[in-house]
Design a protein around this nucleic acid. Structure first.
Lengths: 415, 415
DNA sequence: CCTATTTTTTCGAGCCTCGAAAAAATACTG
DNA sequence: CAGTATTTTTTCGAGGCTCGAAAAAATAGG
């Protein structure tokens, strides 16, 4: 149900807005914040004075470039790095990675670890995650008072409430409530996010010009994942993390997918599918558990050298991705696409067939204008996304607290 | 950019909330409104007193059922029918329909007209629309002071700003800015909406229990359209009205679609496609311009009687819809579906293959629990949706006016 | 008629934002 | 180097809004 706006919500929201403005712009002056938020100078002055007093913001020296102007120089506001810290935990195939980030977004500690996620028992997997977090928390070098929030990311499906992993390709176990487990263990609020959603968030922070209101991040890896931002908001499914682009149907009753079904986009474009086609094993061949990056690089090299099954395999991948994107674009209209992950390095092999396929679809009306970026390294992106997600939680829920839970459909209405 | 909340926004929003509460609930008392909005009794009292004074709301007799209780009886608040009026204009194949609706949502006048939309010149089509609106506005019987808003709906693609029809199957002409044309002609704010989106809005008003936050309305007609509500909000494309479900790709390089491309869902499930398959004309046969409802009924009858090409045609339609829905559900998670339009009357022929297909997809994991409603008559639904859309515009922009244009991403943030 | 109960209104207090004016801090000018 | 112009930031009073508490209103039951 819709919920009214109470008087005390006002300050809370405007506080959050000021913090957000500082996080976005680096070192905005009070005047700049007033301009971007539309609030009066007096209000910004009062709020920022509060925030500085609470140790959330700090004044920094005016930027030299501006000091050429006449008049009282602007005073930059910046985030106080010591105001809080957050932790990111990224769990991917055979790899666990943790970072500690200060309030200004700088990495202050990290730890990484190889594990055999595919064969580990459930308890061991959970235990490793808890242990690595504990080691970081107990690190005496860490002068950060306390971690305010933990953001986990994992490949696979998470629930809408960001509490649990429901299913993941990196482990046979399902329904692990990582967020609850870490919260119970350490008493620190935690969320469990989908890796591709974090990629999308990171892209937006990295390049807000390009990745503004509507864009798509596609992970080309062993499987195919997607993070989608529409109208400035992360798009998630209604029950789960959503956006299972890799399991849209490319060809009914087509190639065997890792998910057990047939004809999914992933069954043509995932690493195992490219591998299977390049080795001419047939579309019914059981997907292999993992293909090493080196093997994939060799495949790409072979495909670039001669017109053989390798090249055809990449062509098929491009076709599947193109038709999938075409169907997606039919629903949401075209948007910039970032191709992330090891196979993005082979995007030159994928792109021609992809563009040809997309041009055959309703969404591909302006296929020439659709642009693709590539970013072969997904892990840093996922980490950054987790960090920003955790930090904005702190911004909103800890430093601008209030009846957050009440925020229903304020201002939203279907008709 | 994010925008702060100013002090005067507060009252405006809470006013809008009270009006919305009354529109939803029929005759809520002040106490009920206070409960649903979370605002204090004093605030609700002050706001409703204003609204009554302005003639927007009116007090109505307390409902008898409640008067058995002790204590001061509740006074119901209702919308004052004379506060304003709106007009709906629905343009469909060979048919133009206009209604006038009072502020409480009751139809007070209507007019309908057959036209040959497929062959009419551009100017004639626009002229007919302007003329029918003018006749209604000049009707001396109409004691409504003035029409506050016009909502148009048309089959096809409209732009995101709801100003123009970009493309429609009912006419060869494109890019007609109906909203601007009517605004210029009559000085009344107008919007141009997609018909399926209006269906979705109407379903939500008709049955808020069932069609609450996430659901899908699919128009089974000559073409295939979709209206999608996600997280309580109408989903629209980023550039156009969006949700071109009918042009998701079912089979790459498959049957010829009315849009000129190949393999779209519509090329299997639209009336012309069912007709083409039932007549065994082949998938490359040029789509016919129109199939009469009588012909479609005959086809359905034949399909129910014997296992022939007619039954197979419906089976193929079901398969295409099932795989399409499956791909859609992969992106957004399953949701209730309403099948609307003449062919919804033949949904018994479509459903088995649809369910079988959807079960093959990632989105169909819980395919048994996905439920379908059918509603053969789309026109009343589209009209209702237009009416509610226009009325809520009046609620928000005329009766709770303010710096509406400023509302940026208030409270929204990607991370 | 009086009391209990429930709804609605009234009233003062407390915040919040705003605009205008003042204060602060710098560059330019002669 | 003092005075002036310019720009940023703070201060201060005014006006508005919501809230809680108390009062008023309206009814049923005894």
């Amino acid at each position: 149900m819709s919920v009214g706006i109470r008087h005390d919500d006002l300050r809370r929201r405007n506080r959050a807005m000021v913090i957000a403005a500082v996080r976005r712009s680096g070192q905005p002056s009070r005047t700049e914040i007033a301009a971007t938020t539309g609030l009066s100078h007096s209000t910004i002055s009062a709020i920022s004075s509060d925030l500085i007093g609470e140790g959330i913001l700090a004044e920094s020296k005016p930027s030299e470039a501006v000091s050429l102007k006449r008049g009282r120089p602007q005073v930059g506001l910046s985030l106080n790095p010591e105001a809080a810290a957050v932790m990111t935990v990224v769990l991917s195939l055979n790899f666990l990675s943790v970072t500690v980030i200060d309030y200004a977004g700088q990495v202050v500690a990290e730890e990484q670890r190889r594990l055999d996620t595919l064969t580990m028992p459930r308890d061991a997997l959970i235990g490793e995650c808890v242990a690595i977090v504990r080691r970081r928390l107990e690190d005496p070098d860490l002068d950060i008072r306390s971690i305010a929030r933990i953001a986990l990311a994992i490949q696979g499906i998470t629930d809408t409430r960001a509490r649990a992993m429901l299913w993941s390709p990196i482990t046979p176990h399902t329904d692990i409530a990582f967020a609850d487990i870490l919260e119970d263990e350490f008493g620190i609020p935690a969320t469990m996010e989908n890796d591709c959603n974090m990629m999308a968030i990171a892209l937006r922070w990295r390049d807000p010009q390009r990745y503004r209101d509507d864009f798509i991040a596609i992970l080309l890896s062993h499987g195919i994942g997607m993070g989608l931002v529409l109208k400035g908001e992360l798009f998630t499914g209604t029950h789960s993390s959503g956006g299972e682009f890799g399991h849209m149907i490319h060809r009914p009753n087509g190639a065997l997918c890792r998910c057990g079904r047939r004809g999914c986009v992933e069954a043509y474009a995932g690493n195992y599918a490219i591998w299977r086609n390049a080795r001419q094993l047939g579309e019914d061949a059981e997907p292999v558990a993992d293909v090493s990056d080196a093997d994939m690089r060799a495949l790409a090299t072979a495909a670039r050298e001669r017109d053989g099954p390798e090249r055809e395999a990449y062509r098929k991948a491009g076709e599947a991705l193109g038709y999938g994107l075409g169907s997606l674009f039919a629903l949401i209209d075209p948007a910039p696409v970032a191709m992330v992950g090891a196979s993005a390095a082979a995007f030159d092999l994928i792109e021609p067939a992809l563009r040809e396929a997309i041009a055959q679809t309703a969404g591909g009306q302006h296929s020439k204008s659709i642009s693709f970026d590539t970013e072969p390294n997904e892990l840093p992106l996922i980490r950054e996304g987790c960090a920003m997600r955790a930090l904005t939680f702190v911004d909103q829920e800890i430093f601008a607290p209030g009846a957050q839970a009440r925020s229903g459909l304020v201002g939203k209405n279907v008709a």
